[in-house]
C-alpha cells in the first residue's frame, strides 16, 4: 500500500462511533453535561462584542445573558473543550499524515466557489445554532444521549432539511 493510500485511511466508522459514544458517556458521568461546539463560538462573539463596546454588550438582551462581572465570557467549559478539540484533531491528523494546507472541493467547482459556500454555510450554521440553542454536537448528539426532546427535534430537522435541500446543492458535491 502506498503512502498516499495510507494517509487516506480513516478509523472504522463503527469503532469511531463506539469511542465517541464512550467519550460522551464519560463527559456526562464527570460533568453532568454533554459535548458541544457552537457554544464556544457564541462565547467568542460575546467576548469580542464586549471588548469592542462594553455598553453595547451589556445593553443587548442577548449578549448580556452571557456576561457577568466575576467571569470572563471565554472562561467557559465549552471554550476549553473546543481548544481540546483543535489539539486532538491536530494530533490525529499529524499521526495519520493528513496535515496539509488546502481547499478541499469537488473537481466540478472552483476553490473560490467552495470558499464562498463554506462561508455561507458557516454563517447559516452560526445563526441556526443560536435558534436551536446548540448544534449537531451540543443539541443533537448530546441531547439524544439523554433522550432530550429538543435533541431529537434538532437532529431530525438538521438532517431532514439536509435531505430536502440536497438536490439544490448537488453541484457542490457530486
Amino acid at each position: 500500500m502506498s503512502t498516499q493510500d495510507r494517509s487516506k485511511q480513516y478509523m472504522n466508522p463503527y469503532l469511531a462511533g463506539v469511542l465517541l459514544g464512550l467519550v460522551l458517556l464519560l463527559t456526562f458521568y464527570i460533568t453532568g453535561r454533554g459535548l458541544g461546539a457552537s457554544g464556544a463560538v457564541k462565547s467568542s462573539v460575546v467576548a469580542a462584542v464586549d471588548a469592542v463596546s462594553h455598553s453595547h454588550a451589556t445593553g443587548s438582551k442577548y449578549y448580556s445573558q452571557f456576561i457577568s462581572d466575576d467571569n470572563h465570557p471565554l472562561n467557559s467549559w465549552l471554550v476549553f473543550e473546543v481548544l481540546g478539540v483543535f489539539a486532538g484533531a491536530f494530533l490525529s491528523g499529524a499521526l495519520a499524515g493528513r496535515l496539509k494546507l488546502k481547499v478541499e472541493h469537488s473537481p466540478k467547482i472552483s476553490s473560490r466557489t467552495r470558499l464562498i459556500f463554506a462561508g455561507l454555510g458557516g454563517l447559516f450554521f452560526g445563526l441556526g445554532s443560536q435558534f436551536a440553542r446548540g448544534c449537531t454536537s451540543g443539541a443533537a448528539l448530546s441531547g439524544m444521549a439523554v433522550l432530550s426532546l429538543g435533541g431529537f427535534l434538532a437532529m431530525i430537522f438538521i438532517f431532514g432539511t439536509g435531505y430536502v435541500v440536497a438536490y439544490f446543492f448537488r453541484k457542490l458535491w457530486i
Partner: peptide, 11 residues
C-alpha cells in the same frame, strides 16, 4: 475530553 472528542472525529 475535548482532545478525545477531536481525535475521534478527525480519525
Amino acid at each position: 475530553l475535548g482532545m478525545a472528542f477531536g481525535f475521534v472525529l478527525e480519525s
